[in-house]
Simulated assay, not measured.
Amino acid sequence: MTAHPDLTGAVWVRSSYSNGLGGECVEFAPDVARATGAVPVRDSKLPTGPALFIPAPAWRSFITAAAGAAS
Rank of each mutant, 00 (worst) to 15 (best):
M1P: 02
T2V: 12
A3M: 12
A3Y: 10
A3Q: 14
H4R: 10
P5I: 09
P5E: 06
P5D: 09
P5M: 09
T8C: 11
G9V: 11
A10I: 05
W12A: 02
W12I: 01
W12S: 03
V13R: 10
S15F: 06
S16C: 12
S16I: 11
N19T: 02
G20N: 08
G22Y: 00
G23R: 07
G23K: 11
E24A: 15
E24G: 11
E24H: 12
C25V: 06
C25N: 12
C25R: 07
C25I: 07
V26R: 05
P30W: 08
P30F: 06
P30S: 06
P30Q: 11
D31K: 02
V32L: 08
R34K: 09
R34E: 11
A35L: 06
T36N: 05
T36Y: 04
T36V: 06
P40M: 10
R42D: 08
D43N: 13
D43C: 12
D43M: 09
D43F: 08
S44F: 05
S44C: 08
K45N: 15
L46D: 15
P47I: 13
P47G: 12
P47H: 08
P47V: 10
G49N: 07
P50V: 11
A51N: 07
F53G: 03
I54K: 01
P55S: 02
P57C: 03
P57L: 02
A58C: 08
A58H: 02
A58F: 03
S61P: 04
S61Q: 14
T64N: 14
A65K: 14
A65F: 14
A66R: 13
A66E: 10
A67E: 13
A67S: 15
A67D: 12
A67C: 11
G68P: 04
A69L: 09
A70D: 10
